[in-house]
């Protein structure tokens, strides 16, 4: 019940472009005992999904959609203190996003969920060249590479990136996970791209990796 109320208040703040109110809503929810994972998956994620639907229904403009994305990025950054302060488990995740910064919220959530489990997480940002991803993964001896693909047109880029990682010296050891709308719509696509697994959201990603890499 409380999450519904938080969701409604948060979405309202996004629709008004009110960054302070969005942050206040999220912080108040945490102070009231809401788990940060629930805040991510039951408030931020559906609110941003709703914002996307509102754009498709011509209820908001592109500028308002961009502002909502920027606000949620900012709110997540301000709540980061609740994310990273966990006992290290000695595992490392490299996360990257194919496409612009507008599409990085999902992979940010995945990265934060792993950090909540004590993983060392390196988020490389959007549009990182594959060679830099390989170099970072080698330097940090990463256990897992997470790649977010948000548009169909980005799928070939993901395939190329995975191919380059597989052909590198770490290709046999590192596990690769892909996620995003095009992957969710075609459940077998992750295998065709050369990835080890996929997950529909951040919680499922963590559960799956814990099972596979236990």
């Amino acid at each position: 019940m409380i999450l519904n109320t938080v969701y409604t208040a948060y979405l309202d703040a996004l629709c008004r472009g009110d960054r302070r109110r969005a942050l206040h809503t999220a912080q108040t929810a945490l102070n009231d005992g809401v788990d940060i994972r629930d805040l991510y998956l039951e408030v931020f994620q559906p609110a941003m999904h709703q914002i996307g639907l509102m754009w498709e229904r011509n209820q908001i403009t592109v500028a308002e959609e961009h502002l909502a994305t920027a606000i949620t990025q900012s709110v997540m950054a301000h709540l980061y203190g609740h994310v990273f302060d966990r006992t290290p488990v000695g595992r490392t995740l490299i996360a990257t996003c194919i496409g612009g910064e507008l599409h990085e919220l999902g992979i940010r959530m995945v990265a934060d969920f792993f950090e909540m489990e004590g993983w060392d997480v390196y988020y490389l940002g959007a549009n990182m060249p594959a060679e830099d991803v390989v170099r970072m993964a080698q330097e940090r001896q990463a256990d897992l590479l997470a790649i977010s693909v948000t548009l169909n047109s980005h799928v070939p880029h993901a395939r190329r990136m995975i191919q380059i990682v597989r052909e590198s010296s770490i290709g046999d050891q590192i596990k690769i996970m892909v996620g995003g709308q095009p992957i969710n719509r075609a459940p077998d696509l992750y295998e065709k791209l050369g990835a080890d697994f996929t997950a529909r959201d951040a919680r499922e990603a963590v559960q799956l990796v814990m099972e596979v890499m236990a």
Partner: peptide
């Protein structure tokens, strides 16, 4: 320019995260 502003916002949120860690 829109995309540049989003990129700047992304960099700033990265810095806020790093700052949180350093503060802790």
């Amino acid at each position: 320019l829109y995309h540049e502003v989003l990129a700047i916002n992304s960099e700033l949120t990265n810095l806020i995260r790093q700052l949180s860690k350093e503060q802790a």
